[in-house]
């Protein structure tokens, strides 16, 4: 009897195509696409492969990448956050207003902005979990609230729609070491944001694949009812994920603010979908329970390369949007195939 089950099991394992196993990695589609984009622009333009060129697209990708990694974790956990773009503006504006207008110590201002961002993330999570409303709606409302506040409050306090004089604030240079440093190797300049991006991707991947918390993220996104039955703290896990995207929004806000020394009240608006697209291109399922932080980072790399590559190639910038749309559709089709192969039979 047990011999019969043995052979049955073996047959089933043998049937799995090695190519399918490789394709089941969530990152694989994005990795192939990234390579294609890299080869495309390297051969089309002179500037793309120069040290200065690489620095440019890496920097561009890093800011999207930090957000995409946090957004991918939230999406694996089965939720959306549309307030992430506005959040990058809000955190920068908070620090800007506090430091330039109220002359609060810049370190303190950065810390207060972090606490406020995490608070907003926790609010998104708490409302979503308490009401059972789709996070799409809850964070859409947060998005509009933040967008309104960013403009209205900034105008009310400073009289303009941008923060000026940030670089004259005492302590600015100190904080810049963390968020705005540039390490130069000849023509190649490595910006702090790239290091943050790589570190965050590594930590996120480790958490997702090698910790209990990561296991719970996959479980609450994959089948939250089952997760609850076996004792996973569903509400707590999801609230932490929302705080993660808001925290990433704070980080990107700081990275931009301390890099250029100014922030617009409209910063980040419209970027939230790009983060989601990067995560989806990187293999996240829209329905949750599947995806990868590395994939999301590669998704952001694709976007960064395309964004700067199109500039280097001197194409019309509008092609970027068309490209983005096509990438998204392709990624979703690949995901659909993967999901069928992974066989969600139930």
């Amino acid at each position: 009897m047990s011999a019969a089950t043995l052979t049955a099991a073996d047959e089933r394992v043998v049937r799995t195509n090695p190519l399918v196993v490789l394709l089941q990695r969530p990152e694989i589609g994005a990795a192939v696409a990234a390579l294609a984009i890299f080869i495309l622009f390297s051969s089309l333009t002179q500037a793309f492969l120069t040290p200065a060129g690489v620095s440019t697209w890496l920097y561009s990708a890093s800011l999207y990448g930090i957000m995409a990694v946090a957004v991918s974790m939230l999406m694996i956990g089965g939720e959306f956050d549309l307030s992430t773009g506005a959040m990058t503006g809000t955190s920068g504006l908070m620090v800007g207003v506090m430091a330039t207008h109220y002359e609060i110590n810049v370190w303190l201002a950065v810390t207060i902005a972090l606490a406020a961002s995490l608070g907003i993330g926790a609010w998104n999570g708490w409302i979503t979990m308490k009401t059972g409303l789709p996070s799409f709606i809850v964070t859409l409302s947060t998005f509009f609230i933040l967008q309104g506040i960013n403009l209205a409050v900034t105008k009310l306090i400073t009289g303009t729609v941008a923060i000026q004089g940030m670089s004259d604030v005492p302590g600015f240079e100190q904080v810049k070491v963390i968020f705005g440093s540039v390490i130069r190797f000849g023509d190649f300049s490595l910006r702090a944001s790239v290091l943050w991006w790589i570190a965050l991707t590594a930590v996120a991947t480790w958490v997702l694949l090698r910790t209990r918390a990561g296991n719970w993220v996959f479980a609450v996104g994959g089948q939250s009812h089952s997760a609850r039955q076996v004792g996973v703290p569903v509400v707590r896990t999801k609230i932490f994920l929302f705080m993660g995207t808001a925290g990433a929004g704070w980080l990107v806000g700081m990275l931009s603010l301390f890099d250029v020394g100014t922030v617009q009240a409209t910063t980040g608006i419209g970027q939230e979908f790009i983060y989601i697209i990067c995560a989806v291109v990187g293999g996240c399922l829209l329905t949750g329970g599947y995806g990868s932080a590395i994939g999301a980072a590669i998704g952001a790399l694709i976007y960064g390369m395309a964004l700067q590559g199109i500039v280097f190639a001197q194409w019309d910038n509008n092609w970027l949007k068309a490209f983005l749309g096509a990438m998204l559709l392709l990624a979703v089709l690949v995901n659909l195939y993967v999901r069928r192969q992974a066989g969600v039979r139930s």
Partner: peptide, 23 residues
């Protein structure tokens, strides 16, 4: 129970230990 409390997309071993992971 009939729904088995499993998460289909997660691996067999992760499902086995879900909620009581060994660390």
């Amino acid at each position: 129970y009939q729904d088995l409390a499993v998460v289909p997309l997660m691996s067999v071993w992760r499902n086995f230990f879900l909620g009581s992971e060994i660390t």
